[in-house]
Design a protein around this nucleic acid. Structure first.
Length: 493
RNA sequence: GUCCCCUUCGUCUAGUGGCCUAGGACUUCGGGUUUUCAUCCCGGCAACAGGGGUUCGACUCCCCUAGGGGACGCCA
């Protein structure tokens, strides 16, 4: 049987380093076995998915050096590879499940479900759907559907016993059926949820091995139920460890740069990033640490994947990146620098800003240093201000970061609008409000216009600089964070 | 709270019952090469979570405890 693996990102936020991580292992495994590696877009969340985010995934993964054999952008024999284009397939399979009694229609309101969960939680139970609609009479169900009553389709689950399934890395895993929720498979808008779509697609696309994050372990019983109901063999599953923040929690943008774009903008070489990622949970048989994706595939063995969640350590990535940079020929080095940022396209948006402030050409570099490279390190003294206290600065930076995270688009005018309204809501004059932001972003009180700078740097770099500035100001204690959180919500949006 | 997963230096890891006085890498500290810096080289500090078993022998197998993480959505 041919080996086929896949990566199935959701086009919601910015492309995540975790996506590249999973892609890397799936690609390495497929290539090591002479198989295929597939990219599938899981855009079943209508509210959050966007075409722009999908395009960003293609670009970011391509930049990283991930190459797929089949996908929405290049086609293949098992398409379509975009779940929003497979709705008819899911509908058919949902009907089959209903017919087999493996799923049922549910008309419960969001309010009832919330109340039910609240009570279960109060009793110390695992929140689960109580099965009320499961016993509805067939005629009743049909009538309500015909009346146009909103409904979903849920998975029927056993009440007793345990679900046992094999994990290629962890051995046999047992989860009591009582823990498994009667999961929604089809939403009221007719779109499938992840659980239905992933099983149907993995089967139809003949995926032989599923290498996914360990956050999926607890939903695997649902998937097992679906495979059984359809009478399909279950692909081999391998749950890889999750990348961690330095504090051990799941890697998150709040605590660590997580966007692939950050690493590109910050000047990392994609081959160094992938090499580093490969070391997160995997090791070469001979323990060598510097190797290419081709060498990874050549020596790949799933059994060498560790199960402990590795902490993403920027210091070691920096070292590794240096190794790769110094191994480049001078020619290649120059090529990389220009391809990275020192080229016409990349400099074009800065030119008008800089030109207006230039008397001699030699002024130029001093204006753009913090945009093309990193800015200098900060200390609390940099934030001294005639009216703002250190606590004021922390508050402004914290709120600004929060507001920016909520912002769907990342252009100058949108940035200005969001922060202007925030300053107004806080009752701080824009002139004062901007002071700590200038320091955080450019490292000085005077620089090129702030919003142009932020737009140019991009979301990840700006987030990293704000976080770094907050650290320079002494950081925010748990208590202060809580208070800030509460006050922030009170501000009119 | 319930269920599941995980547990070797600060961090990434090697280790599949005797090769372990636990190896490598990053970080860090010290030294050397270099007109400075960086690179590079040499050296040092630093770990088997705790407790019970099994065994002639446990880092390696089993159990318990503790700690960490994840899941518990009409998100994926």
């Amino acid at each position: 049987m041919p080996i086929r693996t896949r990566i199935a990102p959701s086009p919601t936020g910015d492309p995540h380093v975790g996506t590249a991580y999973m892609a890397l292992f799936n690609q390495a495994f497929a290539n090591s076995q002479g198989g295929q590696f597939i990219l599938r877009i899981e855009d079943t969340d209508r509210a959050r998915s966007s075409a722009a985010a999908e395009e960003a995934i293609f670009q970011a993964l391509r930049w990283a050096g991930i190459e797929w054999h089949e996908g929405p952008d290049i086609g293949g024999g098992y398409g379509p590879y975009r779940q929003s284009e497979r709705l008819e397939i899911y509908r058919r399979h949902a009907d089959e499940l209903i017919g087999k009694g493996a799923a049922f229609h549910c008309f419960c309101s969001a309010e009832r479900l919330a109340e039910m969960r609240r009570q279960q939680q109060a009793n110390g139970d695992t929140p689960r759907y109580d099965g009320r609609c499961q016993s509805l009479a067939l005629a009743d169900v049909r009538a309500r559907i015909e009346r146009g009553e909103p409904h979903v389709i849920r998975l029927a689950t056993p009440e007793d016993g345990v679900c046992r399934f094999a994990d290629g890395l962890r051995g046999s895993i047992e989860i009591p059926w009582r823990q498994v929720d009667k999961q929604v498979l089809v939403k009221s808008d007719g779109f499938p949820t992840y659980h239905l779509a992933v099983v149907v697609d993995d089967h139809l696309m003949e995926i032989s091995h599923v290498l996914r994050g360990e956050e999926w372990i607890s939903s695997t019983p649902k998937h097992r139920l679906l495979y059984d109901a359809f009478g399909w063999p279950m692909p081999a599953h391998f749950h890889l460890p999750l990348l961690r923040n330095p504090d051990g929690s799941k890697l998150s943008k709040r605590k660590n740069p997580t966007g692939l774009d950050y690493y590109r903008r910050a000047g990392y070489l994609p081959e160094a990033l992938l090499n580093y990622l490969a070391l997160m949970g995997w090791s070469m048989p001979d323990e060598r640490e510097l190797f290419s994706v081709a060498e990874l595939a050549a020596h790949f063995d799933v059994q060498r994947i560790a199960t402990r969640g590795p902490v993403f350590d920027l210091a070691k990535l920096d070292w590794m990146n240096g190794q790769y940079i110094r191994a480049l020929s001078t020619d290649e080095f120059m090529h990389r620098i220009t391809a990275w940022a020192l080229n016409r396209d990349n400099l074009a948006p800065l030119a008008p800003l800089v030109q207006a402030r230039t008397e001699r050409l030699s002024d130029v570099l001093g204006h753009v240093d913090y945009l093309l490279g990193d800015r200098r390190g900060l200390s609390d003294a940099d934030f001294e201000h005639k009216t703002l206290s250190s606590a004021d600065c922390r508050r402004i930076l914290h709120y600004a970061g929060q507001r920016l995270d909520e912002l769907p688009s990342w252009q100058r005018d949108a940035l200005y609008g969001a922060l202007k309204s925030l300053a107004d809501a806080m009752g701080v004059k824009m002139r004062d409000f901007l002071a700590p932001l200038f320091v955080a972003i450019s490292g000085r009180a005077v620089s090129l216009p702030l919003f142009d700078s932020m737009a140019y740097l991009g979301r990840d770099l700006v987030r990293a600089r704000l976080r770094d500035a907050l650290t320079a100001l002494g950081g925010i204690s748990k208590k202060e964070a809580k208070r800030l959180e509460r006050d922030y919500r009170q501000l009119a949006h």
